[in-house]
Computed example of a mutant assay.
Amino acid sequence: MSATALEQSLLDHYRWFHRHPEPSYEEHATTEHIRRILEEQGIEILKTGLKTGLIAIIRGGRPGPVIALRGDIDGLPITENTGLPYTSEHAGYMHGCGHDFNLTVALGAAIELHAVRDDLAGTIKVIFQPAEEGRATKERPTGAVQVLNTGALDDVQAFFGTHDAPGEVGAIYIKEGGTSGAVDKFAVTIHGHGTHAAEPTKGDDVIVATAAIVQSLQTVVSRSIDPVHPAVLSITHLEAGNTWNVLPSEAFLEGTVRTTERVDRQIAKDRAVRIIENTAAAYGVTASVQWFFGSPSVDNSAHWAAVGRRIAAEEGLETRPGWADLGGEDFSYYLDHAPGLFVRIGAGDTNAPHGPTFAPDPHGIIAGVRFLTAIAKRALAELADPTDGHADCTNEND
């Protein structure tokens, strides 16, 4: 397939995916459409037991290392208001974060790599992952965890992925180290003794105690985290009482902490819990704290970031410095398994992600395909012979 024909085909596929968004763990039509495209190309699909999403496999002509590429496939519960001619046909849902863009990049790379499979030494697994946006619970973890739990990726030595981003169309944004926020949640119940509002000395004022806790928690980032490390603590929910003249016996608050550095993640928890418990004690009440560690930060390998910059230059692609933000991204779970690189692909002035007017420029897709295809080839070569003029590729995330 010529480059022009491939690009047109991928744009057609992208528009289909954009018109048919599906929520996390319900991406049935999306999965089947991806399956049909892959099968038409003669690309093998692994049997994994996944209910939605799938893993394709490209077996090189010679034995060698195993790497993986990832695209995510789920949409969001948002009513689209972009005015695009290929706007969502599923009421109340849209691809409001660009997963249609990301999966099309992975699809294009799979097609390109399959076409040259006889020249490859090694194996490439291409993940079309469900539920990146899904709210993770112990019973229903995020999509990356479910994919890893199949065991199909146990032999993978390096992971690579892309995500659309605001910026110059087709530019590759690369950053080593932490690039997303570790997603941690806390929930706190303040316990005291309720009383009439006219007689506060006969009970405890859990509302005043809660207000003090909220204020004090803002010092976690400002006084406990290195000021050059991105981090934020936000209180997002407060609840206490149900009438105007009674001091309640309980109050509730919850929120989230986002950090990019592993050491900061534990510091934030330890400091927050001490503040909550000790501030409560100072007001004569008690606090029950629940802390939930979600997905870690995406921690890009410095080695693979350097390789990515070289690859982009060789492909004639523009490269730009990447950045860290504090949104969650479950590609981080793959990088806990093996090192790799997660890059952003410029998609123009997209408007705010997770909003009804979000609209990446799909003409950035082909740049993502070129990058992902090229770094896959390079990764197989380097992992097969890490002494071939390059740094060692061992897991830098251990």
Score class of each variant (00 low, 15 high):
E112L: 06
R117H: 04
W244V: 08
L153M: 12
G60W: 01
T243F: 05
R117C: 04
E89C: 06
T142K: 15
E261L: 12
T4I: 11
E26R: 04
A5N: 02
T4S: 05
Q218F: 01
E112V: 13
L69K: 06
D72K: 13
E261M: 09
V188G: 01
A171Q: 07
T279M: 01
F292K: 14
V246Q: 01
G328Y: 02
A152E: 08
V257K: 02
S249N: 08
A212F: 00
E199D: 06
R62V: 04
P77F: 12
K47M: 14
T4P: 02
A282C: 02
G308N: 14
V369W: 01
N81P: 12
D74C: 12
L317D: 08
H229A: 06
L76A: 13
N395V: 05
G284N: 04
F293L: 06
S297R: 01
G284H: 02
L11P: 02
E22D: 09
A338E: 09
T179C: 15
K175T: 00
Q41V: 01
D205L: 00
A312W: 14
F160P: 15
G167W: 00
A109P: 06
E44R: 09
L50K: 05
R36Y: 14
E396V: 07
E329D: 12
H163G: 11
P248T: 09
P63G: 12
G161N: 10
L84R: 08
G143F: 08
S180A: 10
D361C: 00
P227T: 02
T236R: 13
T189E: 13
Q129K: 10
L113M: 13
N278P: 00
Q41Y: 13
V147Q: 10
T52S: 12
I111L: 09
E7R: 03
A313H: 14
V221W: 06
I124E: 12
G181C: 05
A91R: 11
K47Q: 15
T104A: 07
A281K: 02
G170F: 01
F358L: 08
G143W: 08
G327D: 04
H13Q: 05
C97S: 13
R320W: 04
P360N: 04
S224P: 00
L76N: 14
Q215P: 00
I275G: 00
E7N: 11
E80A: 14
I111M: 11
